[in-house]
Computed example of a mutant assay.
Amino acid sequence: MAGESLGSLDEDQRAALRAEQVGFVFQSFQLLDSLNALENVMLPLELDGRRDAGRRAEQLLQRVGLGHRLRHYPRQLSGGEQQRVAIARAFASEPAILFADEPTGNLDAATGARITDLLFELNREQGTTLVMVTHDERLAQRCESALHLEAGRLKEDVA
């Protein structure tokens, strides 16, 4: 499906493409409260039929520093820990492209800096294209290229 016009795909094909090729990290984490950290990361892998879902999820949670919090539910985790679970979930299926919408917006500065470092580390390790929306100029400066939008219009390319 890569290289194919999205307009030529039906809804099922677009959903399959999203599931196979695209990851998302949201400002508000979007974890399921009824699932623990391990289950939240396993879910997209299980939906994709991966037999290694548990092992892969545990590896990623270890990688983001949460190996000791596998069985904790979102309400038992700090904001930074919840965002690390969300990042592990986003990278679990090894997406070709990952969209991050204000990934540090709900975090204090120190936690946001750690989350940023983690995003860029996983990005390099997995070779994922990272597309990020942010109002944080320091975060934008770490990107290879940046576009500045004002009132919905491209103002300048600040790369």
Rank of each mutant, 00 (worst) to 15 (best):
residue 143 C to W: 00
residue 13 Q to F: 02
residue 80 G to C: 07
residue 53 A to Q: 11
residue 60 L to N: 04
residue 64 V to Q: 07
residue 118 L to D: 06
residue 23 G to A: 08
residue 90 A to L: 11
residue 126 Q to M: 15
residue 28 S to W: 06
residue 129 T to E: 09
residue 150 E to L: 06
residue 110 A to T: 03
residue 23 G to D: 07
residue 99 F to K: 10
residue 16 A to L: 15
residue 153 R to D: 09
residue 23 G to I: 06
residue 91 F to A: 08
residue 150 E to I: 07
residue 122 L to G: 13
residue 16 A to M: 08
residue 95 P to N: 12
residue 5 S to G: 03
residue 22 V to T: 11
residue 142 R to L: 03
residue 113 A to F: 04
residue 94 E to P: 01
residue 110 A to K: 15
residue 1 M to W: 02
residue 90 A to T: 08
residue 34 S to N: 09
residue 154 L to M: 12
residue 128 T to M: 07
residue 80 G to A: 11
residue 105 G to H: 02
residue 89 R to K: 03
residue 97 I to A: 15
residue 40 N to L: 08
residue 4 E to F: 03
residue 44 P to M: 12
residue 110 A to W: 04
residue 93 S to L: 03
residue 115 I to L: 08
residue 111 T to D: 02
residue 142 R to H: 02
residue 132 M to D: 00
residue 93 S to H: 14
residue 93 S to T: 06
residue 43 L to S: 10
residue 77 L to D: 04
residue 62 Q to S: 09
residue 154 L to V: 08
residue 124 R to S: 06
residue 141 Q to H: 09
residue 19 A to S: 14
residue 136 D to E: 06
residue 58 E to R: 15
residue 134 T to D: 00
residue 92 A to D: 04
residue 106 N to D: 15
residue 37 A to T: 04
residue 1 M to D: 02
residue 96 A to Y: 02
residue 37 A to K: 02
residue 117 D to C: 01
residue 108 D to L: 05
residue 3 G to R: 10
residue 128 T to E: 10
residue 143 C to I: 01
residue 90 A to P: 13
residue 117 D to H: 04
residue 102 E to Y: 00
residue 142 R to F: 00
residue 85 V to F: 07
residue 91 F to R: 14
residue 62 Q to W: 11
residue 14 R to F: 00
residue 74 P to N: 09
residue 129 T to R: 10
residue 56 R to V: 15
residue 139 L to K: 00
residue 132 M to S: 01
residue 121 E to A: 12
residue 123 N to C: 15
residue 89 R to I: 13
residue 77 L to H: 06
residue 73 Y to V: 01
residue 23 G to W: 03
residue 116 T to E: 07
residue 56 R to H: 05
residue 15 A to V: 08
residue 55 R to Y: 03
residue 6 L to E: 06
residue 113 A to S: 04
residue 36 N to L: 04
residue 90 A to E: 05
residue 60 L to K: 06
residue 74 P to T: 08
residue 75 R to E: 12
residue 140 A to E: 00
residue 44 P to T: 14
residue 54 G to L: 12
residue 114 R to N: 07
residue 11 E to M: 07
residue 119 L to H: 01
residue 60 L to Y: 09
residue 68 H to V: 01
residue 12 D to H: 03
residue 9 L to F: 05
residue 112 G to M: 03
residue 67 G to W: 02
residue 107 L to H: 08
residue 156 E to K: 11
residue 95 P to T: 09
residue 80 G to E: 09
residue 18 R to L: 13
residue 74 P to K: 11
residue 50 R to E: 15
residue 150 E to A: 08
